[in-house]
Design a protein around this nucleic acid. Structure first.
Length: 211
DNA sequence: TTCCTGAAAC
DNA sequence: GTTTCGGGAA
């Protein structure tokens, strides 16, 4: 079976560095992490564009529920996500609405706090830690499971175990975790889709096609 | 019709 | 373990 690092290298050779997360600021990244839950990024882009003129914690808090819901409507689950954004903003305010303040806090503490926020689960919490705060935390998602299972790894189903699998197999490297997860997303959208597109797949030699 | 960088409630 | 939340594009 292919070493985990070789897996990354193969994907990077194929797709190139992915340069994640696509956001202009840490705050936009964190908002995007909530909006993108079970939704394609194209629709999140529309929602962020509609928020853009008022994309700050204060301006969003000042909106009525109806206003906020209307802005983020294109991202789907808009009523739920409006409340999730508000819950996140409440937590952010407890740190002074200040990303620099967050950087003074231990990763494990931040992770536990984020998991207490209603609407933020393990994947969203870790995405924020990695892509907004540059902490070396490996993000696991549905794509990760799909790809790892298809190429024949005995891959843990539980989030924390799946995460440990990568963090124990790889150096504790934030930049590596950043691009590795991005490569998985790219590969899942390009080839390892729900209905696999195996022609030209860079992992073809390794894949057991146990779909 | 299907699928999308999930999480909470049931 | 299963259902719910949802618009947008293929």
């Amino acid at each position: 079976m292919m070493p985990v690092m070789s897996l990354y290298e193969r994907l990077k050779e194929t797709y190139g560095h992915q340069n994640w997360w696509p956001a202009d600021s840490p705050f936009e990244m964190m908002a995007g992490a909530i909006l993108v839950q079970n939704t394609n990024w194209n629709n999140v882009g529309k929602a962020l564009a509609r928020l853009q003129p008022d994309l700050s914690p204060e301006r969003i808090r000042a909106m009525t529920d109806e206003e906020l819901e209307e802005r983020i409507r294109p991202s789907g689950f808009f009523r739920m996500k409006a409340q999730r954004l508000r819950a996140f903003l409440e937590w952010f305010e407890s740190h002074g609405d200040d990303v620099r303040a967050l950087q003074q806090v231990e990763t494990d503490v931040l992770r536990e706090e984020l998991l207490q926020v209603k609407g933020i689960g393990a994947e969203t919490a870790d995405s924020i830690l990695l892509y907004a705060l540059y902490r070396p935390v490996f993000v696991i998602d549905a794509y990760t499971h799909r790809i790892m299972n298809r190429i024949g790894y005995q891959f843990p189903k539980k989030y924390n175990q799946a995460q440990a699998f990568f963090e124990e197999a790889l150096p504790k490297d934030e930049a590596l975790y950043n691009d590795f997860h991005a490569q998985f997303v790219r590969h899942a959208k390009e080839h390892c889709k729900k209905k696999p597109v195996c022609e030209g797949c860079p992992l073809e030699p390794e894949c057991e096609k146990q779909i």
